[in-house]
C-alpha cells in the first residue's frame, strides 16, 4: 500500500458515493447510464470472487464488500426505486459490442487459464470500457449535470492515481501487472478529453457542460 494507491481507492469511493447520493437526494437518476452502472456491478462481482478464496488484508476485504454493496445499491436505485426517472431512451449504447470482445480477449490473454483468472481478467478489461455507455449518453443528450461531471472527474482521478501507483510499485517493489497496467492506461485515455472539458468549463463556473 502506498499513498497513491490509497488516494486512488478513496477517489473511487468518493465517485461512487457522489453518484449514489445524487440519485438518492434528487430522487432521480436522470442523465445517468444504468448500463454503465450494471457493467460496474458486473466488474466488481467477477473481480472480487477471491473474497471467498484468499484473504489479503482487512482493508482489502472491507473495500471489496463496500464497492460491491454500493454498486448494487446504485443499480437498485436506477432500475427499481427511481426507475420512472431513468432515461432509457438516451441510454442506448449497445453493451454487447463491449461484452463480446472483452469476453473473447479475457480467454486469449490471461495469467492462467482457470475460471477465477479468466473472470478476473474479464473484470479488468470490462472496467476499462464500462464508462462508455455513460459517455455515449452525455454525447447524445449534449450535456451533463455538474454533479455527473464531478462523478466522472473522481472516477478519472482514481484511474490516474492508479497509474502513479504502478510507477511507484515498479520502482520500489519491481511489481508489474501487465494486464492491469495496459488496460488501466487505455481506460485513463478515455477520460482525457473529459478532463480537459471539466477543467476548462465546469471548474470555471458554468456548472453544466456539453461535449462536442
Amino acid at each position: 500500500m502506498n499513498i497513491f494507491r490509497l488516494a486512488g481507492d478513496m477517489s473511487h469511493l468518493v465517485a461512487i458515493l457522489i453518484l449514489l447520493l445524487k440519485i438518492w437526494r434528487s430522487r432521480s437518476c436522470a442523465g445517468i447510464s444504468g448500463k454503465s452502472q450494471v457493467l460496474f456491478a458486473l466488474v466488481f462481482t467477477t473481480r472480487y470472487l477471491d473474497l471467498f478464496t484468499s484473504f489479503i488484508s482487512a482493508y482489502n476485504t472491507v473495500m471489496k464488500v463496500v464497492f460491491l454493496a454500493l454498486s448494487y445499491a446504485t443499480v437498485y436505485l436506477i432500475y427499481m426505486r427511481f426507475r420512472n426517472s431513468y432515461d432509457s431512451e438516451n441510454d442506448t449504447f449497445r453493451v454487447e459490442f463491449l461484452l463480446v470482445p472483452v469476453i473473447g480477449l479475457s480467454f486469449l490473454e490471461n495469467y492462467s487459464f482457470t475460471p477465477m483468472e479468466i473472470l478476473w481478467t474479464f473484470s479488468i478489461f470490462l472496467e476499462s470500457v464500462a464508462i462508455m455507455p455513460q459517455l455515449f449518453m452525455i454525447t447524445k443528450t449534449g450535456e451533463a449535470e455538474s454533479i455527473t461531471n464531478h462523478y466522472l472527474f473522481f472516477l478519472g482521478l482514481y484511474r490516474a492515481l492508479y497509474i502513479v501507483n504502478w510507477v511507484w510499485r515498479y520502482h520500489t517493489e519491481g511489481f508489474f501487472d501487465q494486464i492491469a497496467v495496459v488496460s488501466g492506461v487505455v481506460q485513463t485515455i478515455f477520460y482525457c478529453d473529459f478532463f480537459y472539458l471539466y477543467v476548462t468549463r465546469v471548474l470555471r463556473g458554468r456548472g453544466k457542460m456539453s461535449l462536442p
Binding site: 478464496t53 488484508s57 482489502n60 478476473w120 492491469a180
Partner: peptide, 10 residues
C-alpha cells in the same frame, strides 16, 4: 513475476 492468485489491488 507476479503470482496469479494474489491480486492485491482493488
Amino acid at each position: 513475476g507476479m503470482r496469479v492468485d494474489d491480486h492485491d489491488e482493488l
